[in-house]
């Protein structure tokens, strides 16, 4: 394994560079995945059948908490990568931990929100609108859940093995994933919630 010290740790080997490019292409596929879900959402948004519309069920308080928490977590994962580049493992771990914690808060609020939807009569089977709403939100939520476990396993590995080209590479790729989930949330916030509340 040739290590090029002129590059940041996460880019320092050939395999590392390949991993990062591969992950960007994966994000390309993810954009298509969420793009398709949004296309389906826009098609089905007014097809509410006998069920409620978005304006009937959306609540502003959990939405603001979710948005605030997730956007902050995107900032803290950025700080974690910055600390990693400075070689400060302890600071990096702290920011990583905060990120995952914020992710957990987001997820809890989302579960609470789903529960609320269910209780106001917007279940998965109610109408085409509720089905696509819950599927789109659920797909994002499933990504966050997966990210929590993934991030946790990276934290454990960095703690055990220190900052090596390999762990740095994994951490960096995780940060790309986490930022991406944030971008998707911005679209969900704007085009599902805000548009629905208007």
């Amino acid at each position: 394994m040739k290590i090029d010290n002129s590059l940041p740790l996460e880019y320092s080997t050939g395999q590392n560079q390949i991993n990062i490019l591969g992950f960007w292409i994966f994000i390309g596929a993810e954009i298509m995945l969420f793009g398709t879900l949004f296309a389906a959402y826009f098609t089905l948004v007014d097809r509410t059948g006998n069920g409620p519309t978005g304006a009937d069920i959306f609540e502003i308080a959990p939405l603001l908490i979710e948005t605030f928490v997730l956007l902050t977590s995107s900032f803290t994962i950025g700080l974690a990568i910055h600390a990693m580049r400075l070689g400060k493992q302890k600071a990096m771990m702290t920011f990583f931990g905060i990120t995952l914690l914020l992710g957990l808060v987001f997820l809890s609020v989302e579960i609470f929100e789903f529960n609320h939807f269910y209780h106001v009569g917007a279940g998965l089977q109610t109408s085409a609108f509720t089905a696509i709403l819950l599927t789109t939100l659920g797909t994002h939520g499933a990504h966050v859940t997966f990210g929590l476990f993934w991030g946790l396993s990276i934290v454990l590995q960095v703690r055990k093995r220190g900052l090596t080209p390999e762990t740095a590479n994994k951490s960096f790729i995780f940060s790309l994933y986490w930022h991406f989930l944030d971008v998707v949330w911005i679209f969900i916030f704007s085009f599902i919630y805000l548009k629905g509340l208007m």
Partner: peptide, 30 residues
């Protein structure tokens, strides 16, 4: 990379219609 995610979502929705009784592609409830 750009086409298969569309199939993934379509199949997911189809599976949900068949197994979880959702209403993506049915003729009722929108």
């Amino acid at each position: 990379v750009f086409a298969f995610p569309v199939l993934t979502v379509a199949l997911l929705m189809g599976t949900m219609d068949r197994l979880f009784a959702t209403n993506f592609f049915t003729t009722a409830n929108g």
